[in-house]
């Protein structure tokens, strides 16, 4: 009886899953397939599902059109630095907010949360003036330090840490472990999934940063990948094949990160939503 029921519902479930997978993957497929099309076939009617003939030249041409090797190194360096900063500082702050009682805790948490609510476009000019005071325009510091920690990361870590039983920490304290040791040796290992999630999201945001680098970077040697991509969309008319090719290359680091961390990462976002 149960088997039949299951069988019957599967007739709906699997087609539904296929539709979901199709919708999820379609833009990726379209990006990659267009990067192999000739420019004149790009908007062909009726449209070309598979590139014919295959254009192999878009990738090398796009890569050479700008100094993308340098831009990738810059983007990777900036994104990794911001990610590491967030992992450390947000986990410390989240631990503090989730597991300690002290004066002003809730108001501090609210203040931290409030930083998530104003778009960067608004605070950009005041922020730029501050960076200028530090003499950080056109430096890696200017790209990294303002984003070293972010309200979202603190929020995520706090939510996750709320789910860690207090008894565990109390037991360690009874054994005479120092507060820092408790953080480093007990709390951190338990946080791996949340850290993976935070890592992937911070990396994505940092890899995505566009307007901020646009404003503070004027040296070619400091440009990041999105700035390079935007130059493809110049007023000369877009080389669509190259744009799609460079977009695909620019997505690759995110995809790799996702596939390597997938397991703990999905677990990480997931547990954020849980409260004991």
């Amino acid at each position: 009886m149960k088997n039949i029921l299951r069988h019957r519902s599967n007739l709906i479930v699997y087609p539904l899953l296929l539709v979901v997978a199709f919708i999820g993957l379609l833009p990726y497929y379209w990006m990659v397939s267009c990067s192999f099309k000739l420019n004149e076939n790009m908007f062909a009617y009726p449209l070309q599902w598979f590139p014919d003939p295959i254009n192999w030249l878009a990738y090398p041409a796009a890569w050479k059109a700008q100094d993308f090797t340098r831009y990738f190194v810059n983007s990777a360096f900036v994104a990794i630095a911001i990610t590491l900063g967030n992992l450390l500082l947000a986990s410390l702050a989240g631990y503090s907010l989730a597991k300690f009682q002290y004066k002003g805790r809730n108001i501090l948490f609210l203040l931290i949360l409030s930083t998530m609510m104003l778009p960067l476009e608004v605070t950009m000019v005041p922020l730029f003036l501050i960076i200028k005071q530090f003499d950080w325009a056109n430096t890696y510091e200017g790209l990294i330090v303002p984003f070293f920690v972010d309200g979202f990361g603190v929020f995520l870590m706090r939510q996750y840490l709320l789910s860690i039983p207090k008894d565990l920490l109390e037991a360690a304290r009874m054994d005479g472990a120092s507060e820092f040791r408790i953080y480093a040796q007990i709390v951190m290992p338990l946080c791996k999934p949340a850290l993976a999630a935070l890592g992937v999201f911070t990396f994505r945001e940092a890899w995505d940063m566009y307007i901020w680098p646009l404003i503070i970077v004027t040296k070619d040697s400091l440009k990041t990948v999105p700035l390079g991509i935007s130059l493809f969309m110049s007023n000369f008319g877009v080389a669509w094949d190259q744009l799609m090719a460079i977009a695909a290359i620019g997505t690759l680091p995110m995809l790799l990160l996702f596939f390597f961390l997938q397991r703990s990462f999905i677990q990480g976002i997931a547990i954020t939503g849980l409260k004991e």
Partner: peptide
Amino acid sequence: NATVASSTD
């Protein structure tokens, strides 16, 4: 020292 940005930006 030269700097290039896209026309829209």
